[in-house]
Design a protein around this nucleic acid. Structure first.
Lengths: 220, 220
DNA sequence: AGCGTTAACTGAACATTGATAAGTTATCGG
DNA sequence: CCGATAACTTATCAATGTTCAGTTAACGCT
């Protein structure tokens, strides 16, 4: 039961309607990616789904990497939205940090493939690997900075937390990095090693959040 | 400055000396892998280094995956040895856990490429992905169980720790998983995102160890 | 010394991959 | 209706992992 879906040729786009095709390609790539994973998301198969020839893809994306980058940013928007939601609805800085952790883990576990693409892949070309944690100084209008944006929010929460009088055991950015590393370790473990007999998932999530909150807050 | 090293043809092996060639292949693959990374470690290039034809490789390895698996196990032996060293020289269970963490991080940071191959790669075929954390019930004589063996040692340390009277906040295996996830998050962050402006590396390592030790030990 | 078996190995080829070059077609403004 | 050009295709490239069919050389045996 693999790749039987060849789509009928799509009509040529009207002049000036190229961006439409671009989005069709993105959608097809995303579908394929979610259905069959990265390895099956080939240029030819994407083109096939859209109903155009393979080289036509290169009219809209410089190369496969650029296509995947665009996909990543699209998905990251979801996580950014989730964090914005927290900022809108939660006032307490400590609670914001906890909610951030929960949202991050939930995002990773419900979008495992994108998570792999953005945060885990050591095999994919350099530029894609960087997407997750490109330096915060990079041009934020360019594709591939979603991860850094999210991370900056976490650090901002920690700065608030410190400003509100809570003592931290490390500088806010170090705290943020430690928390992210723990959350990332958790998510990537579940994603990369699903066959491992992990103990209760909810316990692990709760435990990881507890450990890190307890670890960064100074308690005399 | 890339791939100029083509090696002269090696003489045919005597009858019964095939295993020698097998090890030559492994060595060449390892060198190439360390020098140029996974993407450059192709069947043809490996064969080229050894001085044989590409198909000759398939006399000694079922496929590329099997070759890489063998490489992984070879490298894992180093980590296993480091852990055994701890068992030999350190008696205190708590200290054993701390030393395990240090050794694990040191291993990851000094063997980043192997670490990527074994623990990080979401793109490489399934069997290689599993290497790091194959279920402990798997046949331990088969290749690819190095990761699980190491992890079992950590859990054993935690069981000792509990037996010695120290109260834990979670069951030993859950504690082990949490610790491993944190350590792994740390190592993989450094490896996958070297360009990110992390705060002081030593502080992060020390912090991660502290956080997790504090987190799993019950302190009333 | 010669012969047959077979381990060790090679050359050519296949299907896929991402990517490019060069040419074609259809749309649209004037 | 015509010329410019956006949109697209066909043919092709080099590289990848892998297989097939054959070849060569080492060894035991008579």
């Amino acid at each position: 039961m693999t790749g039987f879906s060849t789509v009928l040729p799509a009509g040529r786009k009207r002049r000036g309607e190229g961006h439409t095709r671009r989005e069709e390609i993105l959608q097809a790539a995303k579908d394929l990616f979610l259905e069959q994973g990265y390895d099956s998301t080939t240029i030819r198969r994407i083109a096939d789904r859209v109903g155009i020839s393979a080289p036509a893809l290169y009219l809209y994306f410089r190369d496969k990497e650029a296509l995947m980058l665009a996909l990543c940013d699209q998905t990251f928007a979801h996580l950014i939205e989730a964090v914005a939601e927290i900022e809108r609805t939660v006032a307490d800085p400590l609670e914001r940090v906890r909610r951030f952790g929960e949202a991050y883990v939930r995002f990773g576990l419900t979008h495992p493939d994108e998570y792999r693409l953005v945060f885990l892949n050591a095999n994919i070309p350099e530029a894609i690997r960087k997407v997750g944690h490109r330096a915060a100084t990079d041009d934020p209008t360019k594709p591939g900075v979603g991860g850094a944006l999210v991370f900056k929010r976490l650090v901002a929460f920690l700065v608030e937390l410190e400003a509100s009088g809570t003592k931290l055991n490390y500088p806010p950015d170090t705290c943020g990095e430690l928390c992210w590393m723990g959350l990332h370790g958790l998510v990537s473990a579940f994603i990369l090693k699903p066959e491992f007999p992990w103990s209760d998932r909810e316990l692990l999530i709760k435990g990881m959040l507890e450990i890190h909150l307890k670890g960064i807050l100074r308690t005399p």
